[in-house]
Design a protein around this nucleic acid. Sequence first.
DNA 1: GCTACCCTGTGGTCAGACCACACATCGGCG
DNA 2: CGCCGATGTGTGGTCTGACCACAGGGTAGC
Lengths: 250, 250
Amino acid sequence: MGGDTASARSIEPRAWQAVLEHVEGRLLDGELAPGDRLPGERQLAADLGVGRSSVREALRVLEVLGLIRTHTGSGPTAGAIIIATPGGGMSALMRLQVAASGFPVADIVATRLLLETHVAADLAAAPDPDLAPAARLLDAMDAPGLDPAEFLALDATFHLALAEASGNQVVTATMAGLRSGIEGYALAGQARIADWTTTAARLRAEHRGVLDAIRAGDADAARTRLHDHISGYYAEISPDAGAPEAPAHP
Amino acid sequence: MGGDTASARSIEPRAWQAVLEHVEGRLLDGELAPGDRLPGERQLAADLGVGRSSVREALRVLEVLGLIRTHTGSGPTAGAIIIATPGGGMSALMRLQVAASGFPVADIVATRLLLETHVAADLAAAPDPDLAPAARLLDAMDAPGLDPAEFLALDATFHLALAEASGNQVVTATMAGLRSGIEGYALAGQARIADWTTTAARLRAEHRGVLDAIRAGDADAARTRLHDHISGYYAEISPDAGAPEAPAHP
DNA sequence: GCTACCCTGTGGTCAGACCACACATCGGCG
DNA sequence: CGCCGATGTGTGGTCTGACCACAGGGTAGC
């Protein structure tokens, strides 16, 4: 019962990687597509000649990466179902890399600035961008009685809505991940702001300004306003008054 | 065991998530840092009151995300060691998302264009960018007898070297991931090129042109040349002559 | 002093056993 | 005949115990 199916083991050092590659292969050759259900864990283990634990480790990776979603029970919604929600995986990746000091916060802010200014300019140049979701979020941020955490959550969703409006799913997912990576930083920094009410009002006005520039088709203004909005906030947040907008060349 | 970071966690439905959060928490409070070794799987399981399988599922996720590296055996290099190599995780994420149709290739190319033109312009504006690694790669690409796969690998490394020179680790890791996501696409597309020798020569010349523009401090030229270089190649690769450089606004 | 051996602890894997869950089925009851 | 609850079945989720391969360190032997 040592379990060694001796032939396969010598070539494949890691059983869980074999499972991962198998699923990737089935995705690439079209045998699996979003919405489809994976075989059961026991079935998959038997098919590939590995133990169920190895299958589970691979499925766990796929789940964290946003490739599948698992449900217990039975019925059509049960089991592992292929989804493709890159945002989740990107968020986990960024969050953990920030925690492990793999991603400096300054680099994340700089990248966000890079992506978002491009998105804003892109939207301003687009013939008919769908800005309704973003506008709705701005209205929601006008609600009185929002605590800072709620406000920042809406703020993040607003920026994400702009990325979504651009239609580029990679940019959208990356933005979602970047935001997750610095979520803790932004929340901690908010506590350092003396007059939150004033800051919130300023942020609201800046958001409106960005949206107005996009609506007016003024790409340069949209870019500039968004840049000032983001870098201004992080400058205010930063405890050592560092300039997060120019961290690239020391 | 007051390790709970969030507010209300009455129940813990997923044991492996608890492990993940525990490790993330130890990273955030500085108890773990890159280079440190995690406790053994059995120890971790006992500490957190979960089974070893659950610990392994969490470690597998951390490994794929580029957070840890595991070695068997004993000694100082054995066990799970905290590393922070975001490129690996990003690559796995992008590759699988492309496989699962979560990321359209056009969006990846567009994002790469976005990031890379920015990087090129940034380098051109930088006072003293380190372009030696990129230059070395260009020399390596001049070697005769390179097969297309080798050439494309060097090509990808060259573009990555530019990102690294910018000093932004998030951009570098993202570029690495984007490249991995479309690696298969680029390889498959190369087979469609009739006269590879000519194309390779053109790519070489374009690379030199980009590098020269950066060296000359001409940000606009660097941006334009890089844009033309990338979008030109993917236009040549694309089977349906689609225009991957402007996929955002249909 | 040096070498060869065994010991120990590590991750890697498998097998089997439960549990909770959710749907499917079929029984009895009104 | 129709509804409703108990039971059945298959799913993921988890734990436990057991092996294996591996690599370093200690020790016995030379």
